[in-house]
Amino acid sequence: MDFDGLFSHFGELTTTGLAQGAIYALVALGYTLVYGVLRLINFAHSEVFISGAFAAIWTWGVLGLNQDSEVSGLGSIVLYLLIAMVVAALASALTATVIERIAYRPLRRHNAPPLAFLITAIGASIAISEAFGIFTRRLPQGVPNLVSNEPLFHIAGTPVRIMEVLIIGAALAMMVGLDIFINRTRLGRGIRAVAQDPDTAALMGVNRDRTILLVFIAGGTMAGVAGMLYDIRIGALTYSVGFLLGLKAFTAAVLGGIGNLRGALLGGLLLGLVENYASGLLGTQWKDFAAFVVLVVLLMFRPTGLLGESLGRARA
């Protein structure tokens, strides 16, 4: 137990934890959206995330950047980031769509038992991550150094880096956008209706399959942006990182209350903080362990999460 380490780096651990937590929160939204509508843990969502992360790296590659390139000039940096973000979001949304069409829709037609969905999801997850692994020869892919690691300003002696501000800001903006989309728009109302009662929604003229697809696309978009942010935060990407990140994002979703959009944000940020504090206290190798302990303790005492399960509804 290294309490000195924890307290002397408390501010630093907090800012990096929040940045990591914002990425968890974005990925957690995908789990929460799909769970809210289909009562299904979209196990393959980690691979939706990883496709976005790879798409961003390859976009930079196509634009002539590699891991050694230094880009100067605010305008071009923002442009590179925006292009990569859009491509990553599209790639992830596409992956999510493909997973929905191939792995889930046929099972819904057969009214398969719930575990069958989970098994195809694992199959899809393994197949996609292995495909990336074979394609990249299982080597880590480098990320161009776009966002500098310089502190932007200090809060009570703790440096706050541009990167952390960027990640948290982008994640918050995406989440506000999603919240407005779900709560204020016509399509969002359809999603909430299907989440509340699929059969009644279908009888009222909501196209169920299209709504479900929309949910996957929305979750995919969030995961794609998360993938791009992950790239610039970590600086390298291996095909197999999606699994653990997906598990943690799921933990974040459960922590906040799965099916609850604002819960995903809260859960993600909390989890990022908890695991960073745990790594300060016990050593970095126990970081992942902490996340898992949170998950088990949570499921034992409050499986509905901090804010409760809901997607615009009171559960029966």
Binding site: A112, T120, I122, G123, I126, A127
Partner: peptide, 14 residues
Amino acid sequence: RFLAFGVILIIMMI
């Protein structure tokens, strides 16, 4: 091998 098992899981379940 793992790619193949992923695909097998999906095909079998469907």
